[in-house]
């Protein structure tokens, strides 16, 4: 009969549900990660956010493409003056789809930088850098500097005439910085002259040091985005930001939001003020 069939089916469904839920609950009980993910995905964003708000995610995607294609390139690239150029010819001409991976990394580098600037322009033109988001602007500036340093160090790696002489000029340009310049140039070269150590050094900075720093800074950047909430566009009628920002404005009876110290929760909880 129909009813018993349905009951049997739902019992199976229940067992299936339990089987799926078990590992999720196990994880949640021990880490709170599932709740964290829910919070991240279901947090409030302004109803009138628009396509310009996607530029940050686009930049993140471009970086992840660089990291992925970079790891694949690193499996074939040989950072030695005698082998570097040949290994990149090998990647381009012999390795299966190597031309595609290298092409994505090479053109993707420019896409990444261009998206960085578009994202920054959005934040600037929307006034989204204002209180309480100044710190995130500063993190963004560090990310921009890191991104450009990635471009500078990556450019030497093909080890052809263009990359060699462009790097000579770039290092010497740093050498003209007042007072510290000669030392900066010495550090970048890894000695008095450009040589094998320079290539190894640039490679290490390009694939270990800066990508690590970028990953860490992106983590901080996104933490601040989630904590403070996304700002609404300047023409919006809605208040900007996460609920608690709004609450603090109203409970303090201030509209200007100009005195963060007086409002900071760690002070008020300290007990001496109230």
């Amino acid at each position: 009969m129909a009813v018993s069939a349905r009951t049997r089916k739902s019992a199976r469904l229940q067992r299936l549900e339990a089987a799926i839920n078990y590992p999720i609950d196990w994880l949640e009980e021990r880490s709170g990660l599932v709740g964290g993910l829910r919070y991240f995905l279901f947090r409030k964003v302004p109803g009138d956010s628009n396509w310009f708000h996607t530029l940050g995610s686009a930049t993140l995607t471009a970086f992840l493409v660089q990291a992925t294609t970079g790891v694949i390139l690193a499996m074939y690239y040989k950072p030695e003056p005698k082998t570097a150029y040949a290994s990149i010819q090998h990647i381009t001409n012999d390795v299966t789809l190597g031309w595609l991976v290298r092409g994505m990394h090479k053109w993707g580098a420019s896409v990444f930088i261009i998206l960085l600037f578009f994202h920054m322009a959005r934040v600037f033109l929307f006034g989204a850098y204002k209180y309480p988001r100044e710190l995130n602007w500063i993190v963004g500036v560090l990310l921009l500097v890191m991104g450009m340093a990635e471009g500078f160090t990556g450019y030497l790696l093909p080890w052809d005439q263009t990359s060699y002489w462009a790097t000579v000029v770039g290092i010497n340009l740093n050498g003209t910085v007042p007072f510290l310049g000669p030392y900066i140039a010495q550090f970048l070269r890894g000695g008095a002259e450009i040589g094998p150590d320079t290539l190894a050094r640039f490679y290490s900075i390009h694939m270990l040091l800066i990508p690590g720093a970028i990953f860490a800074l992106i983590g901080l950047h996104l933490y601040l985005v989630v904590r403070l909430g996304v700002s609404s566009p300047p023409w919006s009628k809605e208040a900007a930001g996460a609920d608690w920002v709004e609450e603090q404005v109203t409970t303090n009876g201030r509209s200007g939001l100009t005195q963060p110290a007086a409002r900071s929760s760690w002070r008020r909880n300290g007990g001496d003020a109230e």
Partner: peptide, 16 residues
């Protein structure tokens, strides 16, 4: 290094 002044007033930028 290239680009570093060794004479004129700009030489004060490259003392070491």
């Amino acid at each position: 290094g290239p680009g570093q002044h060794i004479t004129g007033w700009e030489q004060i930028f490259y003392p070491l």
